[in-house]
Amino acid sequence: MKTLRLLALGWGLHFKMLSRSAFDGVLGVMWPLFFATIAFFMFRAGGGGATLLYAALGASVMGIWSATAVAASSALQRERWQGTLELLVAAPSHFSLVLLPITLAMATIGVYSMAATLLWGRFLFGIEIHLEHPLLFVLAVPVTVGSIGMLGFLLSVTVVRYRTAWALGNAFEYPVWLVCGFLVPLSLLPGWVRPISWALAPTWGIRAIREAALGGAPVADLAICAGLGACYAAAGILLVETVLRSARAHASLSLS
């Protein structure tokens, strides 16, 4: 119960802070809209059979990843700059329970951009949002958001010793958009890319969302997406221990 309370409070607090930041909040929502608009124009002008709804769904999940990648990679750096990292590490709660709500809040900000992208497509481009399996769609969105949040958590822990981690977050944006098949089908990419795609939860998340919306069987994709999210969380928790032990031993928590 205590754990759930901590996660919920942490999520709420960070969600509020991020929502009020012009950079993470406003730009986080606007940024995907620019890319969604480009995608809509490209889909409209080009040939091929995919619908604008296909593009709208892909662009909306791109927004969730964008909101998460940049912010997650700089999450610990931000705490370090604010002087709160040592206090958080010294708190009796497990550090991963402090960090998880931060990245989940970032992914939740992405839901804003997802909704904004779908509404943008509906009202500016006349994209009809017709869902084949509405209930599965409603289930697929939080599972995808949660898994992307877990990937953000793992990313934030992995780059904790890297001084300029925020730059890595920027650099990860396009690669994940590409290899997860948000707008470009994986079959167009070189064969060696596919194993990388399969290891990334957003690949399965967008597949589940698309199959729920356009027709198909999203349950297996959803299960894989959730499973990968759980693996990221477990890996992150194990890594947190190692990183913190090392930072304490070398007295480098606030120096890296």
Partner: peptide, 26 residues
């Protein structure tokens, strides 16, 4: 450590992303 991922890495992936999207949309 900032210049390479931001100034060189991101534009290269931007080129790849939009070129593949352009191929997909013909």
């Amino acid at each position: 450590s900032i210049y390479i991922p931001t100034m060189l890495g991101a534009p290269i992936f931007q080129i790849l992303f939009f070129t593949y999207l352009g191929r997909f949309r013909d």
